[in-house]
Write a protein that binds this DNA or RNA. Structure first.
Length: 441
RNA sequence: GUGGGCGUAGCUCAGUCGGUAGAGCAUCGCGUUGUGGUCGCGAGGGUCGCGGGUUCGAAUCCCGUCGCUCACCCCA
C-alpha cells in the first residue's frame, strides 16, 4: 500500500473545498476593509517567552528547532509557532508602535498551530481571521460596539445559516460577584464558564471549593448566569437580583449599548448571555462567543472581547478589543451545506483539433483572457469526446471548437447547445464567469 | 495525557470455522474509427497499516507498534 496517510488535524482541502474556503476569506476581507481595517501579517514564529506572556501556560505549543542543533544555537531564544493571532499582534504593536497611527484597526488572516488532540472542528493547524482595534493609552468603548457589529455583518455574508453572538460583559459579572461578597472573581468566572458543560450542581460545588462561596452566594451567581435575553431586558433581570457596585453599573451600561446597537444594525443575531465568561483569559469588559444555530456542540466559531492591556511597553499601554473567527472550523461545517459550482476557475475549455494548432488555440484563449474570461487549453489533441469529458469532469461550462477554416463554435456543456462564436465578443453568462458557492442540491 | 472504536483496491465497505482476496462506485478500453453524459461488454488496480509469534497454511488467532477516529481536557 505504502500510502502516506493524512496527518490528523492538518486539513488539506480538495480544490472545490478550497474554493469554499477562499470564498469565506474573500468575503471576510471585503467586509473588514469596508470598515477600514488594514491587513497585517505576522511571522509564524515567536519566541517561547513571548507566547507564554499572557499566562496561557498550558497551551500546547509547537516548538521549532533545527534538526541538526549544535551548542551555539542552544543559546538562542527558543522558538515556537504561534497558537493564536492576538499574542503575535500584541508583540507587533509594541515593536511597531512608532509607525502605527492609533487607534489602529487591523485584520489578520493566518494559520495558527495548537498541539491538541484533533476532533471534529478541532485542528492542529487552522486558519484564524481576526479583527482588533488597539488604542494608545485609551480606547473608546465605542470600539467594542463597532467590533461586534462588523463581525456580525461579516458572518451574515457567509453561507453559514443562522448564528448567535452571545455577549456578556466582565465588569457586569465581576461587579455583581463583588456586590454579593465574592472577591475571587477570576475563580467564579472560571466555574461559571463551565455551566453549560457540567450543569449548575457541579458549578455550585466548584464555586464553594475554589471561590469560597456560600450556598446563597453560589445560587446568586448561578441566577445571574441563567439570564439570557435577545434584547436589553436583561437589565431589569439583573436589577431584580439586587446587588450594587460601580463595576456592575458600568458593565450594565456597556452591555446595553452593545446589545442595543447590534440589535439595531444586525437584527436577530444577538443574545445577551450572562453565562459567557471566557475562562481565565485576559478579557476585562465585553466578551463574545458565537455559535451556529443547530450546531451548538461544535463550539464557538468566533469569539473575543475587550482587554484593557493587550500590550505594554514601559509607561505605554495599549488597550484593545478584538474578535477571532475560526475559519477552518467554519469551513469544515459549511462544506456539508454548500459546494463550489466547479473545481477549477476555467469558464472555457479550449479543444485542440491537431497538436500543431496548440499555439493558435492559445491565441484564441488569450483573446478571451484579455476580457477576463478564464480559459484552459487542451494539452493534446485527443478525440473530441475525451476533451469534452475532460471539461465535463471539472465542471467547466463551455467547450470551444475552432475548425480548419478558423471558424469558432462554443458549446454549453450542460445543454449540449453549440453555437458560432466570436472570440472578440463572446462572453459567458455572469453566473458562469467564475466558480460560485451554492447550496448542495 | 486518559479511555473506547477502527486500519482490506482511488472511495465506501464485504470477507463465514484459519485454506494465498471480493462487491459497488470511480478509472481505463471497446461498442460509437474525432462531439461527452445513458446503456452494454471488458480490463487494470491490493506487501490485507507495519513488525513479530502460533500454524502445514494467517486478512482471519496472539503480542507489539504506528496511524486514523470518537469522548474527556481545552479551545477557533
Amino acid at each position: 500500500m505504502a500510502r502516506s496517510t493524512s496527518l490528523s488535524g492538518f486539513t488539506e482541502w480538495l480544490p472545490d473545498e478550497r474554493l469554499v474556503e477562499l470564498h469565506v476569506l474573500d468575503t471576510l476581507r471585503e467586509v473588514f476593509e469596508a470598515h477600514g481595517f488594514a491587513s497585517v501579517e505576522a511571522r509564524a514564529v515567536e519566541t517561547i517567552d513571548t507566547l507564554l506572556q499572557k499566562g496561557e501556560i498550558d497551551k500546547e505549543i509547537y516548538g521549532i528547532s533545527r534538526l541538526q542543533d549544535d551548542e551555539s544555537s542552544a543559546k538562542d531564544a527558543r522558538l515556537a509557532l504561534h497558537f493564536d493571532l492576538t499574542v503575535p499582534f500584541a508583540r507587533y504593536v509594541v515593536e511597531n508602535a512608532g509607525h502605527l497611527a492609533f487607534p489602529f484597526r487591523r485584520y489578520q488572516m493566518q494559520k495558527v498551530w495548537r498541539g491538541e488532540r484533533p476532533q471534529e472542528g478541532r485542528y492542529r493547524e487552522f486558519t484564524q481571521a481576526d479583527i482588533d482595534i488597539v488604542g494608545d493609552g485609551a480606547l473608546p468603548f465605542r470600539s467594542d460596539v463597532e467590533m461586534v457589529v462588523v463581525m456580525a455583518r461579516a458572518l451574515e455574508r457567509l453561507p453559514i445559516g443562522d448564528f448567535r453572538l452571545r455577549l456578556n460583559n466582565r465588569k457586569l459579572s465581576e461587579g455583581f460577584y463583588r456586590s454579593i461578597g465574592l472577591e475571587d472573581t477570576a475563580a467564579v468566572l472560571r466555574a461559571i464558564d463551565k455551566l453549560e458543560k457540567i450543569g449548575p450542581e457541579k458549578v455550585a460545588a466548584e464555586l464553594s471549593e475554589t471561590a469560597g462561596a456560600t450556598r446563597e452566594q453560589a445560587d446568586a451567581a448561578l441566577k445571574l448566569a441563567e439570564i439570557r435575553t435577545d434584547d436589553t431586558s436583561f437589565v431589569e433581570q439583573v436589577r431584580a437580583l439586587g446587588g450594587e457596585h460601580e463595576l456592575l453599573e458600568e458593565g450594565l451600561a456597556e452591555l446595553t449599548e452593545v446589545v442595543g446597537e447590534l440589535e439595531r444594525r444586525v437584527p436577530g443575531r444577538v443574545v445577551a448571555d450572562l453565562s459567557i465568561a471566557r475562562g481565565l483569559d485576559y478579557y476585562t469588559g465585553t466578551v463574545c462567543e458565537t455559535v451556529l444555530v443547530g450546531r451548538e456542540s461544535l463550539g464557538s466559531i468566533c469569539s473575543g472581547g475587550r482587554y484593557e492591556s493587550l500590550a505594554s511597553t514601559g509607561k505605554r499601554s495599549f488597550p484593545g478589543v478584538g474578535l477571532s473567527i475560526g475559519v477552518t472550523r467554519l469551513v469544515s461545517q459549511i462544506l456539508k451545506d454548500v459546494t463550489a459550482t466547479r473545481s477549477v476557475p476555467s469558464a472555457v475549455y479550449m479543444t485542440l483539433r491537431t497538436d500543431e494548432e496548440w499555439g493558435a488555440a492559445q491565441d484564441v484563449a488569450d483573446t478571451l483572457r484579455a476580457r477576463g474570461i478564464a480559459v484552459e487549453v487542451a494539452l493534446t489533441a485527443e478525440k473530441f469526446g475525451k476533451q469534452i469529458r475532460h471539461a465535463d469532469r471539472r465542471g467547466i461550462p463551455f467547450v470551444w471548437f475552432t475548425d480548419a477554416e478558423g471558424n469558432h463554435e462554443v458549446k454549453d456543456i450542460r445543454s449540449g447547445e453549440q453555437t458560432p462564436a466570436d472570440p472578440q465578443t463572446w462572453t459567458p453568462p455572469l453566473e458562469d464567469a467564475a466558480p460560485r458557492v451554492v447550496p448542495v442540491e
